[in-house]
Design a protein around this nucleic acid. Structure first.
Lengths: 66, 66
DNA sequence: ACCAAATGTAAAACTAGCTTTACATATTGT
DNA sequence: ACAATATGTAAAGCTAGTTTTACATTTGGT
């Protein structure tokens, strides 16, 4: 799964730690998702979308391997 | 997290097993998500949304407890 | 060049998602 | 009423998501 968190974060001028704080997860969780080390739960995806004022689909995209 | 899988499934006239087959998971996984026993991964949520031709937000909604 | 803030990782430990197997209970068609 | 299909659960086991701690590297400002 690909994601556009880094760009969305830049648009809102948020650090990984800021974002983590806003949605109540650790900074490493954000970093790990952003760098593709793992896929978040749907709850987390919805919260990220909410913060970015975008849809989940705008932030996360399926790949062939999914 | 709430979800509208049962209704979406009815609209497409799909059984839990049909749906499971289409997205490549077990029938119990669908049943467990549908009955709220657990929250799916974002990959699964995106695939469900794809099958139902809806957005993830139309199918899954955050609750206060999330 | 220096300092602070931001980012990338990693290991250990815990929790939650998911599969398989298996059975029980509805629901529907004939 | 019977058979078939659909749904609800449960246990065991494996994998993946998440936290905490900790450290190394990068980036930005002065």
């Amino acid at each position: 799964m690909k994601n556009r968190i880094k760009v969305a974060r830049a648009e809102k001028d948020l650090s990984q730690a800021d974002l983590a704080g806003q949605i109540g997860v650790s900074r490493q969780t954000i970093n790990s998702i952003e760098t593709g080390r793992y896929v978040p739960s749907t709850v987390l995806a919805l919260k990220l979308a909410q913060v970015f004022e975008k849809t989940v689909e705008e932030i996360f995209q399926l790949e062939e391997t999914d």
